[in-house]
Write a protein that binds this DNA or RNA. Structure first.
Lengths: 130, 130
DNA sequence: ATATGTGCAAATAATTTGCACATTA
DNA sequence: TAATGTGCAAATTATTTGCACATAT
């Protein structure tokens, strides 16, 4: 929360650039396993610390879902997510205009900084299986 | 996930009726502490088990937020939530019509069962403090 | 009687943190 | 060289689970 001078770190850079290559909202652990290929002795704690820091400064977004691990997203423009109850997959959903709409209709006792919309259901692949 | 015959239990009844008295989306632990007043030897495990069961059968809803404990809501009609980043409070938001709207605009590769919208920001009380 | 529910305590899973050392500005 | 970042391991927090006993049908 406090303004503190940022120093660059190769760990943070590696975490952010890895995250930018992915559109599937990986967990901290997946990020760890991947960044490790470049920086073998990076620790999971460092991954968590940097993800928290990047989230604080708005470079990335943290997505929390029911029960499971938090996921991270380098795409910060307004969009929604769809999560498959069956396979756990999380994908982006474009809903152009509707977010602004919902914001203008919502009577909220406070100031809104951010809005999260998640659709939950069954994805096409999983529906095909049954 | 499997259909299994439900037996009634006073613990489950107490949990559900307590939850119905609250509009502030309490955590499992808060529910535990309160139900305990009536059923002193109820265990936290039982509270979690029943909350999971009630969620499965759709009697209540489970809300997951950033980092903190899951919260539970006995109000199952469509509505959104507002969460104060500062004090953690979660309150209901009425957005009549907009949810249907967002659903009809969303192009999702699958079948949607449920939709969750959370506004995140600073509540009035917290804004006054600064 | 038999399936389902419970209490308890231990186990798990995700995330955070303290501390001594490393790195950046 | 002073502030910030890291690795490691231990600690914390939330939640789940195994098991023997209790309760509902």
């Amino acid at each position: 929360m406090e303004a503190t001078k940022l120093k660059k770190s190769k760990q943070r850079d590696a975490i952010l650039s890895f995250l930018k290559t992915r559109k599937d909202h990986p967990t901290a652990d997946t990020i760890y396993e991947n960044v490790r290929k470049d920086i073998p002795n990076i620790s999971l704690g460092t991954v968590y610390r940097n993800l928290a820091l990047l989230t604080d400064i708005g470079e990335i977004k943290k997505l929390s879902f029911d029960g499971t691990s938090d996921r991270y997203d380098a795409e910060t423009s307004p969009h929604c997510h769809f999560r498959c109850r069956n396979c756990g997959k999380v994908i982006d959903v474009e809903v152009d205009g509707v977010l602004e709409d919902i914001l203008s209709h919502a009577k909220v006792p406070g100031q809104i900084d951010e809005q999260i919309t998640v659709f939950i259901g069954t994805c096409e692949q999983c529906m095909d299986k049954y």
